[in-house]
Design a protein around this nucleic acid. Structure first.
Length: 651
RNA sequence: GGCAAGGUAGCUCAGUUGGUCAGAGCGCGCGGUUCAUACCCGCGUUGUCGGGGGUUCAAAUCCCUCCCUUGCUACCA
């Protein structure tokens, strides 16, 4: 019996779970369920990434200790998954004692093998950025961020000799064509390996600068930094390399990630595993982002797509179906309520739901809601049976390869064919003719096919699947279900058993009644809802409180844009001339070019931080900062509710 | 700007190694049916397969070039 082990990334605990997190985890859950009813031992895991200086900073701002802070946010993630009906078999935390042991053992092993060395980090350190700069990165010897001269520090750190494995990995990926899928990401990974010589990976931070991490087993003055900590959680989740569970599941391990963390998973991780003497995972599965049309229901509020809200409004299983059907593996997909309603009405209500709601009442009327005993097939029946074989086989192949959208499409060929079959076989006519043998055959073929479809859908829509099966008089037991056998068999329903008299599992959404809540304007702007990579060091969303005195240090003014052009030497920057009521207008460089054309800025009233120290950005001096507000799909300018004279103070 | 991936009907996408490959679903139009959730079934509609050039008896499918989109990356005080 083949096992199946799938991981999601461990999510960085700095923001609330959003559509992106939900999608990845629901996909992982669906895959786990799929392999389970295909008849294997199957599990997926998720978790949280809790170390690093960003967490320390976020905790400080919140006035909390890092450990307590991480506990809280980790719990928020952990509590979400059951509400989306996802059932990870383990929830790893990088702060757990088990994980610490796995990391330290692994590091020691790699260290003993000679692939970790102590080196100097060539040191222009900027305290503002809390990072080192290379000679190349400095501008006129200054930190490009702070325009200050960085201090030369020769900080020593530990390095993983990743470069040693570059040639090996390149060959491995070339030979194993489905190691990374889909193909486009495989070629991206190969491009990374061909374009440059890999730098060795810096894997430590001195405790003098960062204590919030796992101590290196061979040097107590340092903690482990980032990747040896985060990626090894995949081993921790199944007990670490020594466990019996590991022996069962690791040989069939697969990872599921969004495209933003391709490099660590496709490049760093295989090298690390090789160095640590652990066999490589089987597949790295890479999906795209969810893009969002502006779905805001209130004009005053920009609201991020919240998975729970959508699930509550449309139903959890419909939401899961939409996610699995709408995103094509590897590509980006668009989320909108229109698309959601379209899928629900067309696929679930009109096709699948209607099939159930027309067949069950017929079975009630014509054979007293009991599974009839079929007679001999005609060509109609053999065609349907052949189609069932093909559709289910295709479904299994595609689903197993993460191509859930095409898998569901393949299954729907059968759903649509069954609706046609009802029309062409016309049970109501057979009933009038008293042709009960033929009538029984038709109903049996319909009901049995519906049972197969319902079972196929369990990974995607667990609740609805169980409900459909139970209407057909079948009790679903995931442990003993055998989807693998469904393509080759027909006739599992036993004649005589009772079934439901009616069905209304997938109600149609009335678009008219619904449209009141939808926005009039349809902004075509697109932006990923998930801009920040999981498992990465992104900016904390929560900011601690400040004193009023601190606030008063800000001099914010209203101003009018007199002129605006693109920065000659940058793609994302606009150069504005803003009248703040002073003798001469201010020149302000701002990162607005992706959201506003220069012309559209002319004459606008904007709010400016006026007492920000001037600095050069890409060669041009910026004498202030234009304030904006993030909305899910774009950036909006902060402005006043009515025109005010230039220079008005914000308070 | 550097690196990478893409541009096929209104929308979302199929189209292996060049030769019924110009398709599917949704949407739209007409017709039929009544078992059903105004649903289902049938028929039909729309495309110079991003532009241009080339190779070939033959290209959406190979080569060159240009345009556009997306992602990573540098610049978003």
């Amino acid at each position: 019996m083949k096992s199946f082990y799938l991981t999601t990334p461990i999510y960085y605990v700095n923001a609330k779970p959003h559509l992106g997190h939900a999608f990845t985890t629901i996909l992982a859950d669906s895959m786990m369920r799929f392999h389970k009813i295909m008849g294997g031992k199957s599990k997926f895991i998720t978790g949280t990434d809790e170390h690093g200086d960003k967490i320390v900073q976020a905790a400080e701002k919140a006035g909390k200790a890092p450990a307590g802070f991480a506990d809280e946010i980790s719990a928020e993630f952990r509590d979400l998954w059951p509400r989306l009906n996802t059932v990870p078999s383990n929830f790893v935390r990088t702060t757990s004692p088990e994980h610490k042991k796995v990391v330290q053992d692994f590091l020691q092993k790699v260290y003993d093998a000679g692939d970790i060395y102590f080196g100097e980090y060539g040191g222009h350190y900027c305290y503002g950025c809390e990072r080192f700069y290379t000679e190349k990165e400095l501008e006129n010897g200054l930190c490009p961020q702070h325009l200050q001269k960085p201090e030369y520090i020769s900080e020593k750190n530990y390095f993983f000799r990743m470069s040693k494995y570059q040639a090996w990995l390149k060959e491995y990926i070339q030979q194993n064509t489905d190691f990374i899928r889909p193909e486009r990401y495989r070629s991206e990974a190969l491009a990374m390996l061909e374009a440059e010589v890999l730098d060795d990976l810096c894997i430590s931070r001195p405790k003098s600068r960062l204590e919030w991490g796992i101590e290196l087993p061979f040097d107590s003055n340092f903690v482990c930094y980032v990747w040896f900590d985060a990626l090894l959680s995949y081993l921790t989740a199944i007990g670490g390399p020594q466990s019996s569970e590991f022996a069962v599941f690791w040989p069939n391990a697969q990872h599921l990630i969004a495209k933003d963390i391709l490099k660590p998973h496709a490049i760093f991780w295989p090298c690390m595993l090789k160095a640590g003497g652990v066999s490589l995972y089987n597949h790295l599965n890479v999906h795209g982002y969810w893009l969002v049309r502006d779905t805001k229901m209130s004009k005053s509020l920009g609201n991020v797509v919240s998975p729970l809200d959508i699930a509550e409004r449309f139903g959890l299983d419909a939401f899961r179906y939409f996610l699995m059907r709408e995103m094509h593996f590897g590509s980006d997909a668009s989320f909108s309520e229109d698309a959601m309603i379209g899928r629900i009405n067309a696929d679930l209500a009109n096709d699948l739901g209607n099939l159930f709601s027309r067949v069950l009442p017929m079975a009630a009327r014509y054979c007293e809601s009991k599974i009839p005993a079929p007679g001999p097939d005609t060509e109609l029946e053999s065609n349907i049976k052949q189609l069932a074989v093909d559709a289910i086989a295709n479904y299994q192949t595609l689903f197993g390869a993460f191509r859930t959208s095409h898998a569901l499409d393949a299954l729907w060929e059968l759903v649509r064919a069954l609706n046609k079959y009802v029309d062409s076989a016309a049970p109501w006519a057979l009933f009038k003719e008293n042709n009960s043998e033929r009538l029984n055959t038709v109903l049996y073929v319909l009901l049995e096919s519906m049972r197969k479809i319902a079972l196929c859908l369990w990974p995607v829509m667990p609740e609805k699947s169980s409900a459909m099966l139970s209407q057909l008089g079948v009790q679903l037991d995931p442990e003993t279900a055998c989807l693998a056998g469904e393509a080759g068999s027909f006739g599992l329903l036993s004649p005589g058993s009772a079934i439901a008299a009616a069905s209304n599992l997938f109600p149609r959404i009335d678009i008219k009644a619904d449209s009141d809540q939808k926005p009039e304007e349809k902004s075509p702007s697109k932006k990923a809802v998930v801009p920040k990579p999981e498992m990465s060091q992104s900016v904390p969303g929560a900011i601690g409180t400040i004193e009023f005195a601190d606030f008063r240090k800000l001099d914010m003014r209203s101003g009018t844009v007199l002129a605006c052009e693109r920065h000659p030497n940058a793609d994302k920057l606009l150069v504005l001339s803003v009248d703040l009521g002073e003798e001469s207008p201010r020149q302000i460089v701002s990162g607005l070019a992706e959201h506003f054309s220069p012309d559209s800025m002319l004459g606008r009233q904007v709010i400016v931080v006026a007492n920000l120290a001037p600095r050069k950005i890409r060669g041009l001096e910026s004498q202030g900062m234009v304030l904006t507000v993030e909305s899910p799909s774009k950036l909006e300018l902060l402005t006043t509710s009515a025109p005010t004279p230039p220079g008005g103070r914000v308070s």
